[in-house]
């Protein structure tokens, strides 16, 4: 059995305050390659904290996080940024597309901070957009796209770097139920093609589609 993509050992995150806030209590968690995991919890449960730690956007105050075999606790800021850019693909609730750039330019941005050549970037961006079914809207601006299409662009941007982990934070939070279903269908297909997925949501409907469900409450992660 290969080493897990995500390996959290006794990871905790405490915020400095009086009294200190234990947003994430000591957690041990592994996500294997090709898994589709949903992390469910109400707001304030600590799921965003877990997301940020998984996405290397925040560092745990305790414990070890090994991503793809790399011990992230010993990395410099620049190395963390590099690992984040190359091994993690983010999908956000509010898409975070740049309105002044076309669809393909938005996707190309994913590899701006890597060594990929410009022509490779563009080719891969187009491939990623075709993969999410937007090959016909390469030069459209985000403002002319529907919510579902925008989220597809965001997914394409997350896929283009060939990440080890696709991390989605409430990916359907801004979408209607029909669009939600199509995005979830797409996630299932991506997972079927071997992508490791972690979806953070408060919506049980979204969580139901995953292979494995974890719930988080008051900073404690439990398996369902």
């Amino acid at each position: 059995m290969a080493a897990p993509v995500v390996d959290l050992v006794d990871v905790a995150r405490t915020f400095d305050a009086t009294p200190p806030v234990e947003a994430l209590k000591s957690t041990t968690l592994a996500i294997n390659e090709g898994e589709y995991v949903a992390i469910v919890g109400p707001s304030g449960s600590g799921k965003s904290t877990l997301l940020h730690i998984l996405g290397l956007l925040d560092t745990p105050t305790d414990g070890t996080y090994i991503l793809d075999g790399i011990d992230t606790s010993v990395l410099s800021e620049r190395q963390r940024a590099g690992v984040r850019g190359s091994r993690i693909g983010f999908v956000f609730q509010s898409f975070h597309l740049l309105n002044h750039r076309t669809t393909v330019e938005n996707v190309v941005l994913a590899e701006l901070y890597s060594t990929a050549s410009r022509s490779d970037r563009r080719r891969r961006a187009i491939e990623a957009l075709e993969q999410v079914g937007l090959g016909h809207r390469l030069d459209a601006y985000p403002t002319t796209l529907s919510g579902g299409e925008r989220q597809r662009v965001a997914v394409a941007r997350a896929l283009v770097g060939r990440p080890s982990l696709l991390l989605a934070d409430e990916p359907t939070g801004n979408l209607d139920s029909t669009t939600t279903q199509s995005i979830l269908d797409m996630f299932a297909e991506l997972n079927g093609a071997g992508i490791t997925l972690a979806v953070i949501t408060h919506d049980p409907e979204v969580a139901r589609r995953a292979q494995r469900r974890l719930s988080i409450r008051d900073g404690v992660v439990t398996s369902e």
């Binding site: 800021e77 940024a81 984040r84 850019g85 956000f92 740049l98 701006l112 890597s114």
Partner: peptide, 16 residues
């Protein structure tokens, strides 16, 4: 602000 956050998520360092 959101663009800056996005760039950080895509691998940009503070220095970038």
């Amino acid at each position: 602000t959101s663009e800056i956050g996005l760039r950080r998520a895509l691998g940009a360092t503070r220095r970038h």
